[in-house]
Every structure is written in C-alpha cells, then in structure tokens.
Design a protein around this nucleic acid. Sequence first.
DNA 1: AGAGTGGGCCTTTTT
DNA 2: GGCCCACTCT
Length: 684
Amino acid sequence: MIILGAEWERLLHVIHTEVALIMETKHYKLKLESAIGNLAIDYAQELNAEQLAVVMAESGPMLVIAGAGSGKTRTVTYRVARLIECGIPPSNILLVTFTNKAAREMLHRVELLIRTELRQIWGGTFHHVANLLLRRHAPVIGYSNQYSILDQEDAKSLIETCVNDLKIDTKKERFPKGEVLQAIASLSVNRGVNVQQTTDERYPYFSHLSAQIAEVLSHYQRRKVKINVMDYDDLLLNWKRLLSEQENIRRLYAERFQYVLVDEYQDTNQLQADIIDRLIGEHRNLTVVGDDAQSIYSFRGANFENILQFPKRYPGAKVFHLETNYRSTPEILRLANSSINHNKRQFKKHLHAVRAPGRKPVIVPTSDGSQQAQFLVQRILELRDDGVPLSHVAVLYRAHYHSMELQLELTRRNVPFVITSGLRFFEQRHIKDVVAYLKIIVNPNDELSWKRIIKLLPKIGNVTAGKIWALVSNTTDPLKAAESDAVLNTVPKAGRESWKSFLKILQTLRAPELLNQPSEMMQLIVSGGYEAYMQTQFENYDLRLEDIHQLSNYATQFESLERFLSDLALLGNLEAEDVLTADASDEKIHLSSIHQAKGLEWDVVFVIWLTEGYFPSYRALEDPEGEEEERRLFYVSSTRAKDQLYLCYPLMSETGPYRHLIQRPSRFIKEIDEDSYEYWTIDL
DNA sequence: AGAGTGGGCCTTTTT
DNA sequence: GGCCCACTCT
C-alpha cells in the first residue's frame, strides 16, 4: 500500500491522539455506594430527599425532571462532586450545559465542595465540546485543525454568495433570502431531516423551490469545506460524523467519558440526542436533567420529545422528580401552575412552594405602550424607595422590539438599566472587522474574512474583492500572494496607496514575535488604520474604540490565537457581558428577552406586552404546536420571580406591526385562575 | 464599479 | 422606527 504525504500525516495524527487518550483513560465501573463512608460532604444534611436520591443514584441512564427553582444546579453540582469523591477521575466526566457560563459556574461550585481544582473536566455547551474534539480530529474528516467558525451572519452571507454563483434568478420568482436559507439549512441539520421536508413543514410557501434550495445548500456545504470553515451546525454535525464514521474514535471517547451529564435536556435537538446516544457507548452512565415545561427552543430545532421519550429510548432508565420550589412565593407558583396546566403534552408534576406566603401577582392593563412604560418606571422607583435594589428587578418580554419604548422612558427618567440586547457584542461591525484580520492569520483560506477586510479599503467593493480573492485563493500562501503585482493592478488606481499600507499591516501581523499574541495584534490593527477608518464611519467612534480595547484586554488571558477566536465565536450574549464589563449589573435593572432569562431569577419581575399577537406572538401561533410552546415561555417568565410578579398589557399600540388597533389581553392572562391575581388600574 | 440617497417594507426567540 | 433595496451620480 502506498500512503501519500497528507494521508500519512492524517494517520500519524490519529495514532498520536489515540495513544494520548488511552494514556488518560482507564476503566471505571464503580458501584457508587461502595465508596460512601469516608465522604467529606454531608449530603443528607445539605440536600432534600428528592435531591439526595438523584445525587446518590447508581450508574445507568437516569432522567431528572427538575421543576423551576427546584435546586437543579445544586443537585447536578453535588452529583458531580460525589462522582469525584467516589474516585471517578474528573477527566472521565463530561458535563454538557446550555451556556458555557452555566458550566463554569457549576464546576466552580464543585471545586468549592471538594476543595480541589478541576481543570481536566470537560464542560460547556454542545458546540464548545464539539470544538474541543474537532480541533483534535478535524483532519480525519477533511478539514484542517485551523478551521474558522462562522457565526450566523457569516453563514448567511456565504449562502448568499452561493445563490449568486449558481446564477439563480431571484427576481423572476421570489427566492428565499440568505437568512431564510440559513434557517432551513440549520433546521435540516439539527433535526436530521432533508431540505424538502423542512421546507414542507416550516416554509410551505417555498416548497416548490426546495430542489433549488437543496442545490444552493449543498453548494454551500462544499464551499465551507473548501475554505476550511464550519458554521455552528457543522460543529455538531461533524462531531456526530466523527462518532459514527470513525469507530476507533467513538470507542475512545465512549471509554473516556464514563459519566455524561446533560443539563437543559428539554432543549436538545435530534442531532444532539444522536451525539449523546453514540457517545455513552456500553456503560450507559447518562444523566439528563431538564424540565419539559420549559422547552422553548423549537424554532432552532429543539425537540422536546427527547425528554418525553427518554424513558422509552433508554429502557431501564430511572426517573426522578424535583418538585420543591425554593424560589417563588406560593402565590406566584400558583399562577404559573394554573397556566401551564393548560398544556396537554407534558409530564405530570406537582411543583409546590416552601416559601412563606407573599403578595399576589398583579395584572396591570394600561391604555398604551407609553403608559405601560411610565407605570414601570414609577413602580420601579417606588420599589427602590422600599429597599429593593434596582439590580434585583427585571423586565421580560417576548421580542426585543417590545422594549423600545421602555428604554426611551428609562433613559429619560435616568433609571440605569442593562439590556441583553438582540445584537450580540461580537456581532457588531467593528468587532467583526478587527476579528476578521485575526482570522485570516490563523486560516488564510477564510474567504469571508478576506473579503470583509479588503472591502473596508477605499475603492474596493464586491467586484474587486471577488477578483482579488480569485487571485489569492488556491495558492499555497494567500497572504503572500496578496503582495503580487497582479493583485495590485486589480485595485483601482485611487485605492492603491491604501492597499499598500494594508499589506504592511498584514506583514506586521505575521511577525513571529506576535504569534499567539491576539491582544498586541489587535492594537496593531487599530493603530495601523482601523482607528482612522472608524473615525470616518461611526459617529460614536470613541465608544467602539473602547469596545475594541476591552476585547484586546480580554484577549491577554489566552495562550493561543486560535483558542481566543473559538471562544469568541462560541461565547453567548450574557457571557460576553460578564467577560467584558465588570460593572454591568450593579444598581441597574435588567431588560431581557424571556429566552435569555432562562435559568435566572429576580426579586421582582415585570412581564410586558401580554397582548394577543405580541405574546403569544402571531408568528408562533402559525405552527400547530406554537401555542403550547408560547405557554411554556409564559411559564418560564413568571417563574423567574421570587417575590413580586407584574403582568402588563397595553390596550392600544401606536407602533409595531399591528398598530392603531384595539388590542386584546393575552390568552395566557384570561385562562389563569381569577383568584390567583389582583388587578390594578393606573392613573398617571 | 463604488458610493450615496430616498422610498417601501417589516417587525420572534439564538448557540 | 429601522433596514433593505433599487436607483442615480461620480
């Protein structure tokens, strides 16, 4: 057999990682109870009976139905601590959570419990773990280890390029936009369903185009491999491929991860469930935790059948229930229960409160959105006078634009607030521009980043950028190729001077002493011309410059450029805030979409725009399962409150898609028990 | 081919 | 109220 160079390297790589993994992994088939006795933690003292049962359970598949506020995090934390106390090495545990922040917090709490540092434990989101694995094994499935990660916007624009390449006439007949195509691709991959079926089910008005759509998407798929990039879905898909196409790799990780815990299981999709199925191998030590009543991500492919059918898919699985709510007053819980009981498809549960009685939730009709905003500000200030700090108050809403009026009013009245905004920090233009420079240093084949930064230069638009890309791609060293005269002559005369200084920056960035110094590199990009560019482009240039400085500061803690870039791509919205701004939450009220409020809690919660069409949203109701999911969303929002809950609905709206109509209160308000709340009428 | 301007359209949720 | 698109001028 003749083995060619690249193939040989791939083999070497596989052998190398296998050996490394075997060295780390041993077989642990402990009976957990055999190790009780010399435990440092007094579990029975610190947990209630329901929680204790979960923590002490033996190996094997188990499902924990954890109601809102029932101490889910606590339970998972103690279970991990206990596994470690029983002798399971941390490196044999995998903890998958919904955000990376959640994983960090849980692991930190475990460290406090067992008084040891836990570096070797693998924890994070599915995407994060996928990235860790793929950085090791990408060559086996046809990528280089230096692949870049596309965010949604990048994915969208690459798909649009594909539509252009295929010369599809988007005018003759209305063809879906990049955003829709990206959503179709994503749903198909995550639900394990083909494009035809996705369009039929979710975009029936594009059904007749599904052959063309499929063509665009397969073009997109090949294109990504060619330029060595993965989008969010590829991370999961390629993780699954690794496990199903490479039996040796699957076996290694099945043996390595002796205990797998998955949090927020109700929001996993088919692809994620498949990955877990393949990963747990023969030992079946899988703990999944979640609450079917809080499944709110079907729009991105989550399938709450995963949690409902878990006992069937894992015969012999034990099912545990955490039904004691420590968070909310009985009044708030009663209202939430009375709403969620209208859902048919769920596990039966009897979530009960242990806290002392408090105030009844309040329903507040207002004449319109601006009166609603005035009421909120007034009530928030009264609460502050009564000793409730602003940081203990949150306003939640179904869609980001519902908060616009309130933001104006808060600003006008000088009430400080933080907002987990629609636009993620890292998706802002100036951040993406600077990061694109770094990306091509790591992955010089990254077409999107190339085009992004050269289009910032004067006299270079789509067309010229395309020509330049054609010249530098398919060369062994695209960064070097950019210095050729052929490229310079492609640039319009008026733009050649700035092109030359651009080349200088590229050269500087590649200097060996800057290798893996993302922070210094960013400073150079800014001083090398980007600052001047920002001054001409943005009226709030100084704020944006400050953002970049903070990011650069954050970058200092990374030992490699590639790690920094992966982290940025996979960091959620909330986490960005924590990472970059120390003072984010002192003495400020919190505005958030309900989705982003998942897992959080506040003393006082206001839910706004509880108006038919807004919440539940008309769009969501188009789907037959939409109403139940919207009701779960309402359940999530009301169970965020500890002491006080206010449900507000304006009767008239001057803005928004359904303006100038008399609005009706949300069905979610009408259907709850009448004596579970009181009404307030507002005079302002 | 790029850059700038005005009219029409649409408002869900995100790793 | 903001964003995208099409159109026009350079």
